[in-house]
Simulated assay, not measured.
Amino acid sequence: MTASIDEQIARKRAAADKQASRAAALKKELRDLERKKAAAERKARTHRLVEVGAILEQATGLTFDTEGSRRALSTALNEQLYYSNGVAFTRGGDIASACGEPDGDQR
């Protein structure tokens, strides 16, 4: 005996609801994974920043524990200077070039 149209509709709706529930669960799992990835990336970046800060303090013998000292460091690294041939550079760009970063200032 064939199912009535109402029974077929009810089965299709139940299947659609089940699929919608599964889709919502998958979207939640995806959001959770994306949050976990973002948290891991933030943690890794923070770790890198702490290491770089330690290297900078060790190399300079200074501590950058005030807003003023950090501002002075930023100014020193970003100040536009000129070589004797007139080419502009920044100390930060020179450091980037020395570390092999392609976006350092060109000489």
Rank of each mutant, 00 (worst) to 15 (best):
M1W: 12
S84H: 13
K37E: 14
G53A: 08
G86D: 06
T60H: 01
D94E: 15
A15D: 15
E67Q: 08
G104T: 05
E51S: 10
T60C: 02
A88V: 09
G86H: 03
G61E: 03
D32Y: 00
E79F: 00
S69W: 01
L49V: 03
E41G: 00
Y82R: 12
R35H: 09
Y83W: 14
P102L: 08
Q8P: 02
I5D: 13
S84W: 03
S69T: 11
Q58C: 05
T46H: 09
E29Y: 00
A39K: 14
A96Y: 08
L62P: 00
A88L: 05
G93Q: 03
D105M: 02
E41D: 13
T2F: 08
N78D: 12
Q8C: 11
P102S: 11
A38P: 00
G92Y: 02
R13W: 02
A20L: 12
R45D: 04
S74T: 07
G53V: 01
D105S: 06
F89K: 04
A59G: 00
D32V: 10
D105N: 14
I55C: 05
G100S: 05
T46D: 12
A24S: 12
Q8L: 15
A76G: 00
T63S: 14
T90M: 04
M1V: 13
I95L: 15
K28V: 08
L73D: 01
E101G: 13
G104Q: 05
G100H: 05
T75C: 03
Q80K: 15
F64R: 02
A15Y: 12
T2V: 11
Y83C: 03
S74Q: 07
V50D: 10
Q58Y: 07
D17Q: 15
P102G: 12
G93P: 05
E29K: 10
Q58S: 10
A24D: 13
L77I: 03
R11I: 12
A23G: 03
A96K: 15
A72T: 02
R70I: 04
I55Y: 01
Y82N: 09
A88H: 05
L49K: 06
A20H: 10
E57I: 00
T46G: 08
S74N: 10
D17H: 13
E51R: 14
Q19N: 14
G104S: 06
A24H: 05
A10L: 09
F64I: 04
A39G: 04
E34H: 06
A76T: 02
T75S: 05
D94Y: 09
V52I: 13
A16F: 11
